Amino acid sequence: MLDSLKQAGKNIGRDLSRTWENISEGWRELLNHSSEALTQFTRHKSEEHDEHDAGDMRPTFPRWSLLAGEIEETDKEIVVRVELPGMEKEDCHITIDGGMLYLRGEKRFERTTQDSTYHVMERAYGAFQRAIPLPRNVDTNDAQASYKNGVLTVSLPKLGGEKGRTIPIS
């Protein structure tokens, strides 16, 4: 009986150790893959003050959220896609400067009724800015942007975008 209790204790310890390793690995992967996408949202000072009034029933919004994106490179262009759910294209502004694409905008909170209570609030609202490093120099004069289904797509032709070639050695 004592031996089986000792073995059970060892098994529990080993299982807890594996669980902790998996949780740690998951957090490292999350931070590694999303650190650039983690974006701070700021609210206007008047909204922050109003939010803490005793009679106000508005939820407390998160100040950080993920703006997931991707950068794709072809022979001729760099394509940047960023998910901006719940935003209008008029609320997005793009600037390219010094090898960086700067995206700024504002995600507005709109409440349709005042007689409800939020139990979960995981969406961030407010103004944000995100800097995305570009892997190559781009032609800003021919850049194009579109917004469809909550995804902003910016197409940036590469400068000197000719395809690489293999040079034979003589």
Rank of each mutant, 00 (worst) to 15 (best):
W64S: 02
H93G: 11
F109N: 05
E83N: 04
T140K: 03
V82Y: 02
N32R: 07
N32A: 08
A143G: 09
T60G: 07
D139H: 03
E122D: 07
F128M: 04
A37M: 09
L134K: 03
S65M: 14
I132P: 02
P135W: 03
S34W: 01
Q40L: 15
R130W: 00
R43F: 06
M100V: 11
R81K: 15
A127F: 06
V151P: 07
L38P: 04
L67C: 06
A143V: 01
S35C: 07
H49G: 11
V80L: 03
T140I: 14
R108S: 05
D91Q: 08
L156V: 06
Y118L: 11
S146E: 15
L152G: 09
E21F: 11
F41Q: 02
N141F: 13
A131T: 06
F109Y: 11
D142Q: 09
G150P: 05
E36N: 13
D53Q: 13
P62R: 02
G55R: 12
A68D: 02
E36I: 01
T60H: 08
H44A: 13
F41H: 07
M121C: 09
I71S: 05
F128P: 02
K107S: 13
L66Y: 08
D50Q: 10
R28F: 12
T95W: 08
P59M: 08
W64F: 08
P133I: 04
I23V: 14
L134I: 03
Y118D: 08
L38K: 00
G98Y: 01
K89F: 11
K45E: 15
N32C: 07
R58H: 06
L156E: 04
E36S: 04
R123E: 15
K89N: 14
T153F: 05
L156Y: 01
A68R: 01
Q40W: 07
